[in-house]
Every structure is written in C-alpha cells, then in structure tokens.
Design a protein around this nucleic acid. Structure first.
Lengths: 152, 152
DNA sequence: AAAAAATATTAGTTTTATCTAAATTTATTT
DNA sequence: AAATAAATTTAGATAAAACTAATATTTTTT
C-alpha cells in the first residue's frame, strides 16, 4: 500500500530531516539517536521508520541502523533547504532570536512551497545586495523593525 | 477540566477564525456553515465546538447557534491578523498567487509568534515606504523575483 | 562465554481530528 | 397541524502520532 506520490506529514518529513542530519554527523543512524534529537521515545521512532520504509524513503533491517534511500535523501535535502532559507530570513532579516527562529522555521518548512521559498531567498538576496548594502543601513533597519511596533 | 492557558491546536484556532468570519457575514453561525467553510462534516464541527465551549471560547446551546465569547473573539482576531499580514506579504511582496498565498498563510498563521508577525509587518511597511516607492521599482523587483530562480 | 547494559521492538493505551450511519430536534411546506 | 426537509447530535470507527511497560536482540564488560 505504498503510494508513490503521497505527501509526507510534517512529522515524517521531520524524521527524514533529522536522519540526514545524524547521518552527516555520525555516519551511522540509530533509533535512539533519532529519538534523542526529536525528543520522542524510541517506539515512536519505530513506527515512523516503518512507515518511511514502507514508502521507500529509508531502509531498515530489524535491530540494525537506518539509512536514507535516494528518494528519502531528496526530501530531507529539500526540507533542510527550506529550513535554512526560513531561518536566515527570520534570524538575519527580521532579527528573530535564534531559538524562536529555529522553532518557527521548523514549523513553516513543512507547509510552504518550493516556489515561495525560492522567492523568499530572492527577496533576501535583493535586500542584501541592493538595499542593506552596508552595516549602517542594516542597523537602521533593525532599529525601525524593533521599535516601530505595529498595532492592531 | 478547562485549562485556562492551554494553547489551542491549529484546527481549533481555525474553527474560531471561521466562526468569526461567518459571524461577520451572516450574523448567525450554524454548524452547517462552519462545516461548509472548513470542508469538514458536521459531527466534526460538533466535537470541536464542544471542546471550544468547554474552554470558554464559544457559547453553544444544543441545537442552536454558535457564538464567540470575548475570549474566543480575541483569539479569532489575532489569528485573522496574522493571516492578513502573511497573505499580504506573500501575495503583494513575493507575488505568490492568490490561492497559494491564502493556503500558505492559513498554515503559517498557527505556528508563528506575534513578535515575528509584527516584524514582518514592519518589513513590509519599510519596503513599501522606503524601497519600492513607486510602481516602476516594484515592477523591477518583481522581475528579479520571478526570473532569478535560486538553485540549490 | 556468561552477565550486564544498551538498544530495539512489540503490544497496548491515549489524544486529536476526522469520518459514516443512525437518531433526534428544529424548521418549512403543504 | 402533519408531513417533509433540513440541521444537529450521538454513537461508533479510523488514522496519525505520541506514550508506557514489557519483551527481544545486540553489544559490551567482566
């Protein structure tokens, strides 16, 4: 019952993302690592892994390590890209503090299209290259952003 | 078992948002209207209404109409504000097409802080007032945005 | 190599959000 | 005012994503 084109849930996308991250860091991905990084218990990881394996996103032999398939890697990479774009935008342009920017990027990354992300990246580029061309201009903008609270 | 400070789920926030919307449009909010607007069946609405009523966000007498309490109105208004800010940003600045912008605003509105929204609004203001100060500049930016695809 | 520790899996539960089908209540029409 | 239609509610089911407790397997230590 593996649907080729099925859209993954946020939760499952997150699993792929974290698996890719651990793979880069430690080469070998154990269930326990995934559980720790995501702050869930290992049986939850098991269920997720089973679903991901059924749909060809990971390979997993019982009691052994987890590996992304090319298909899984692709998704993981796309989500990571979105995360990075969103985080930079929130953190470097809107000056949202690290922790919050990370959390919000983590939530938004699963609900926004590639196209929108591409445009956000371009906006960021444009502002860096053509508007906030030096430190002073960026600082002025920062002050504007932080002081000029918009009211309802 | 009503927790005063409990954070509402995206789904329940959506119910409040749509109830406010219908209230404005038609004065009287029926279960069937909510179901139609949200694309769910009426028993689902019932369950949601019950939860919202238990926590003081709506009032609802059996077989009668649904009304927001001030507490419910407050949340509905906040979510609506976020929606509008996100929609404008996506649609007017990133030129994301209406339908997509609406969909994405609808998803993001539940996972982003007031603070981030306030900054997004300010960014938008700043760009309108100090960067894209005439039609030509905005059009140039639009071209940049749409042509200059960012690659991975 | 046996015992202990760590890790993984299974089984069963909970919560949230949806559904269908059936029953109940309210509103409308004849 | 009865009959019909519309709307609401109840009851019961399903799926996703988490949990705990218990079991199984693998790894490490002695």
């Amino acid at each position: 019952m593996s649907k080729e084109s099925a859209k993954l849930s946020s939760a499952l996308e997150n699993y792929l993302e974290i698996i890719a991250f651990i793979q880069k860091e430690k080469k070998v991905v154990r269930v326990v690592d995934i559980a720790n990084y995501l702050g869930v218990k290992s049986p939850s990881v098991n269920i997720a892994i089973k679903l991901l394996a059924e749909n060809g996103f990971v390979e997993h032999e019982k009691y052994r390590c987890v590996e992304l398939t090319p298909k899984g890697e692709k998704i993981a990479h796309e989500v990571q890209e979105k995360h990075d774009a969103l985080f930079s935008f929130l953190n470097q342009l809107l000056f949202v503090e690290n922790f919050v920017a990370k959390e919000e990027a983590c939530a938004i990354e699963h609900v926004v299209s590639d196209e929108t992300i591409s445009r956000l990246k371009n906006l960021f580029l444009y502002l860096k290259n053509s508007v906030f061309t030096n430190k002073k201009k960026l600082t002025e903008f920062r002050d504007f952003l932080l002081n000029n609270k918009v009211r309802d």
